[in-house]
Design a protein around this nucleic acid. Sequence first.
RNA 1: GCGGGUGUAGCUCAGUGGUAGAGCGUCACGUUGCCAACGUGAAUGUCGUGAGUUCGAAUCUCAUCACCCGCUCCA
Length: 542
Amino acid sequence: MPDTDPATKSMDEIVALCKRRGFVYPASEIYGGINGFWDYGPLGTALKNNIRDHWWKQTVECPPIGPDGEPVSIVGLDSSIIQNPKVWEASGHVGGFSDPMVDDTETKKRYRADHVWVRKAAGKDGNEVLVAIVLGSQEEAQAAWEHFDSTGKLPDQLRGELSKGVKKCIDGAKFYEDAPISSYVDVSDDQRVMVFGQHASKPGTLTEPREFNLMFETFVGAIRDASSKAYLRPETAQGIFLNYKNVVDTMRVKMPFGIAQVGKSFRNEVTPRNFIFRSREFEQMEMEWFCAPDDSPKWYDFWKHERMRWWESLGVSKSNLRYRDHDDDELAHYSKMCVDIEYKYPFTAPGYGELEGVAHRGCFDLTQHQEHSKQKMEYFDQERQVKGQKAGLSKDEINAQSKYIPNVIEPASGLTRGVLVLLCEAFTPDESRPSKVYMKFKPKFAPIKAGVFPLVNKDGMPEVAQKLYMGLREKFTCQLDAKQSIGKRYARMDEAGTPYCFTVDGDTLSDQTVTVRDRDSQSQERINIDQVENFLADKIGE
RNA sequence: GCGGGUGUAGCUCAGUGGUAGAGCGUCACGUUGCCAACGUGAAUGUCGUGAGUUCGAAUCUCAUCACCCGCUCCA
């Protein structure tokens, strides 16, 4: 630190290096590719696995100490990608994911149909028009027009200006006082030509509301009909809620506790963009933390900070990470509070883009599944019962405190976004070195830990290098390379992000030492050949 | 989904209607004395894909796919 500012890094060069060195390839490339899908090459897979393993270890195997000084308890899970389609009705994804959209064919703008509000008026020319404005709710639209009626102006919170055409149209138009503001969704087909879009220059440019379902559909079994329709999961979280009862019943967990899962999710994104940042198939690392409702603010705060610390532990520079609290109007249907951990990607810089969301989901999901499945999701908290009894509370008071549907705090991060962050973070241009760039991974996450080279292929050096390599390969991912010049080999390792290279030279044969070449400083030191393994173990453990 | 741009070797690109090219990289052999050295040799392309125009298309036309930029979207 300070590390190179992501704003100065070229995404094109990062993508090119990823392909050249086997981190990420376009999916189905020999058939011309397929938009929104990527394949992870040998080094990319190693990098992804390293991040995943670190997350699993820090989340499930050795979770942190909680705010009360007690170690937190989190169990692992691996649920199915395809579930009963009723799951997605209960979770709100089938409804919420298929918001109908409206396009303005003139201005090419697109709106959510339920955010478009129309008001009927008689124009100066005697023709009726429906003036459409885009606002989040009917109340806001109502208030906007009331503001207009009293002041002759629409308020500032309208998204964008009214077009000149609309202004001209409503100037002198007579609004029907008794006609309510209505949703565009309810406008009939023949009335649609009368609708004057907020940004349009003339009426009739808005399309009918159209469905955009972001979930991938498939069919279970050989018969393709409505009853066999199923969905690929759009998030791993629901698999956890589905098994909440199973885990409580079988794992001797008690509140508060977490269930963690890593796996693929699928979203049929409208516009996959920015390399692997938004792809249609991606991998998530999600943990659902179940706790008593009155404890939830404490845990929300805890996980918010804990997750930031975790990203910093990957070697991501503090200055490239930040929190962003969600405004009320962008909160998801399930969420009470949500904070994003964001990274300064080269394509968002100087702005930031989402990396992980820590959401307070309340009891939304479990309540939904309780209603839809008719299975009880209530938890009986015996510790609270005992506490209540000791405090001499009444039976009703004790019940009220010890029976509840748990609240959920959800740190949900993108594993594949984590890969992207480490790729961007590691990518370090350096005009002074032959490769012009090196990948500055923290050694722990580097796909290849070490290179082992004979300085030249003679005088017994290859044999010594081979022996060193044979020992190391049992513990570390490393590469033996005797081809071409030593400089070329260092350069290759720089691009792969290999932190250390051990070179056997003439002195090795007499004094049993090798040189260690450090990727970042390019400096060398000599260590005893017997110490190489300890040296590596030390550096990688850091 | 809309508008604009781009697609030629692994990469960067040249090639405007007449035999498909360069540099780098890759591989082999030789050489080598610490940062993409050198020599010799080799492999690599239905010019994104599919049609059309033409005696002849990488080149012109249309369609399509992918990528990039801007909208839009992102529970």
